[in-house]
């Protein structure tokens, strides 16, 4: 979930979202805004005190190839869940790609430290159960800001729980399993925080970072459900500039 918190920031360029987002719509998607803002402030405090310094220390003592290796390794561990969700969404090609990537990167790629599958031209996919629910028409529900985990919504929170249950490394017992899971979670958080450092700084430069994060999270999740394709009618919700008193003839 920490990764999701950080990924919520990643596509943030200068600003926001495509939907017109009327005030009423904004309220409807974030009925717990007061609570969510409190949690956001708490998360920012934790980030400033712990995550950010640790991530910057990690960047200082490692070079790019090492960080890429760690990121590849963690990513490879998640591929069984991506495979299952690709299958659940009825995407056999994506499932086959993911299976192939997992086999190649786990063997030739030395337990996932390297990514030869990309060099072989096998496409990477990113699917989770939140996306699977969205693929089959489940709406996101209210926005939620989770302690330590960051932005989510009801659909993605359910999805996170299902993904955790689907993950073979969580559902099977093995020697040292608890230590392994804690280490995986901690390393994942530090690795993702390091990768997103610049994006998070950009987010904090926004006029209202909480609003920016909330809107970008919803929009980027919707784009992920569409597999990066544009919405069917991307201009349908654009506000009409002529509707308001926005134009002064002197400006033209």
């Amino acid at each position: 979930m920490m990764t999701r918190f950080l990924l919520g920031c990643v596509c943030f360029c200068l600003a926001g979202c495509a939907s017109s987002g009327s005030y009423r719509a904004e309220r409807a998607e974030d009925p717990y805004e007061g609570w969510n803002r409190g949690v956001y402030a708490f998360n920012e405090g934790v980030d400033a005190a712990i995550l950010s310094p640790v991530a910057r220390g990690y960047r200082a003592v490692t070079n790019k190839p090492i960080r890429n290796g760690v990121s590849n390794f963690l990513n490879n561990l998640g591929q069984p869940v991506v495979f299952l969700n690709s299958a659940l969404q009825g995407k056999p090609e994506a499932a086959a790609d993911t299976f192939g990537r997992f086999v190649i990167n786990s063997t030739i790629g030395v337990a996932g430290l390297f990514d030869p599958a990309t060099a072989f031209g096998i496409e990477e996919h990113d699917e989770d159960f939140g996306q699977t629910l969205g693929h089959w028409g489940v709406q996101p529900g209210p926005f939620l800001m989770l302690p330590l985990a960051g932005p989510s919504n009801v659909r993605d929170l359910v999805g996170f729980g299902v993904d955790a249950a689907l993950d073979p490394l969580n559902s099977n017992d093995f020697e040292g399993d608890t230590e392994f899971r804690i280490s995986r979670g901690a390393l994942g958080a530090v690795s993702a925080r390091e990768r997103l450092d610049e994006s998070i700084e950009l987010l904090r430069e926004q006029p209202e970072p909480y609003i920016a994060l909330r809107r970008n999270y919803g929009q980027s999740r919707a784009a992920a459900i569409r597999d990066g394709q544009e919405a069917e009618d991307p201009f349908a919700d654009l506000p009409d500039f002529d509707d308001g008193d926005f134009f002064d003839d002197a400006d033209w």
């Binding site: 596509c11 360029c13 200068l14 600003a15 926001g16 979202c17 495509a18 939907s19 017109s20 987002g21 005030y23 904004e26 926004q206 006029p207 209202e208 909480y210 609003i211 920016a212 809107r215 970008n216 929009q219 980027s220 919707a222 784009a223 992920a224 569409r226 597999d227 990066g228 394709q229 544009e230 919405a231 991307p234 654009l238 506000p239």
Partner: peptide, 22 residues
């Protein structure tokens, strides 16, 4: 608007959401 992986970002619309909140 900027299009990043299907996430289309309209700058004025986003600024409006943030400014209205302020």
């Amino acid at each position: 608007a900027l299009n990043t992986d299907g996430n289309v970002i309209w700058l004025a619309i986003e600024q409006q959401a943030q400014f209205l909140s302020i």
